[in-house]
């Protein structure tokens, strides 16, 4: 297995932001909960590496803490999607054409006809805006994503002769699903998981930007951009920095996903062999 350049760059970018998020639990250059009006709207300098916002808070510190929110929302939502979506996909493929498959797939279609933002709107209208509700909305959105990809991957496996061999060996569908199917769709899950993770970063930012996600005082890149919007003419760095943070995190995850796909795709590996 050759580790590609995009995988290296992607993993490096992702590690930097993950490290920043983890470090923020122990240390940040400044306390992001302390307002300091005299220091407000400063550009980048030796004391404030990335400048300060309209309340005089250190933007570098806020980026570190905001990474925490972004990564947490994305991670939890992807996990929800995996835990619920993968078994559904496996079950649907194992009983292709049955009423169970039909119900799972039609259910997926229905969830798919709710665009992500609409799901978030529905939930916040009833439950109120919060990071938790953003996670739930994105988590629900992820279920059919994983269910579908696992089902289609599993379906192509079910017609393979090694599955027939396992059935001749007397193994039941559940056992075959976990012993034979799951390891062979794991690469699909990893790659799709990376994609959904990077989407989660963008979704959290967008929802927080319009006020449906993380609420103050929880620092979030989306909220930072919402604050920056009115200041964009006088303090462009307030908008530039969080935007670039989102851009680089998402870019890193996408590159990592591409690299993983190239590395894990058995088809490509067979061609190399």
């Amino acid at each position: 297995m050759k580790i590609s350049r995009s995988l290296l760059i992607g993993a490096a970018l992702t590690s930097v932001f993950t490290a920043a998020a983890l470090l923020s639990f122990l240390w940040t250059p400044y306390d992001v909960t302390v307002l300091s009006i005299p220091d407000r709207l400063q550009g980048p300098s030796a004391t404030h590496w990335l400048g300060t916002d309209h309340f005089g808070r250190d933007i570098f510190s806020m980026i570190m803490v905001g990474a925490r929110t972004s990564l947490a929302v994305a991670l939890v939502a992807v996990t929800i999607g995996l835990i619920l979506g993968v078994p559904l996909g496996l079950a649907a493929a194992a009983r292709k054409g049955s009423w169970l498959d039909e119900i799972i797939m039609r259910g997926n279609d229905i969830i798919f006809s709710f665009p992500l933002l609409v799901l978030a709107i529905l939930l916040t209208a009833v439950l109120g805006p919060s990071a938790t509700n953003a996670i739930i909305a994105f988590g629900i959105f992820n279920i059919p994503v994983f269910a579908r990809i696992v089902r289609s991957g599993a379906l192509s496996l079910w017609s393979r002769e090694f599955i027939m061999a396992a059935r001749v060996a007397g193994k039941g569908t559940t056992r075959i699903s976990f012993e034979h199917i799951l390891p062979n769709v794991a690469n699909l899950m990893v790659v799709q998981g990376t994609v959904q993770f990077s989407l989660g970063i963008q979704v959290e930012a967008a929802l927080s930007f319009v006020g449906l996600g993380a609420q103050p005082p929880t620092p979030s890149w989306g909220r930072m951009l919402a604050d920056a919007q009115t200041m964009v003419a006088i303090a462009p760095h307030m908008a530039l920095v969080p935007g670039l943070a989102i851009l680089l995190t998402v870019l890193g995850l996408n590159l990592m996903g591409d690299g993983l796909r190239d590395m894990l795709d058995p088809r490509i590996r067979v061609e190399r062999a």
Partner: peptide, 24 residues
């Protein structure tokens, strides 16, 4: 079976593959 390529789970070693029917 016919297909010498599709008849085996590519992620298993030969030992467990050959032993699979012992499950019976």
């Amino acid at each position: 079976f016919q297909d010498p390529y599709g008849s085996f789970n590519p992620r298993w070693r030969v030992g467990p593959l050959v032993a699979e029917p012992l499950h019976l």
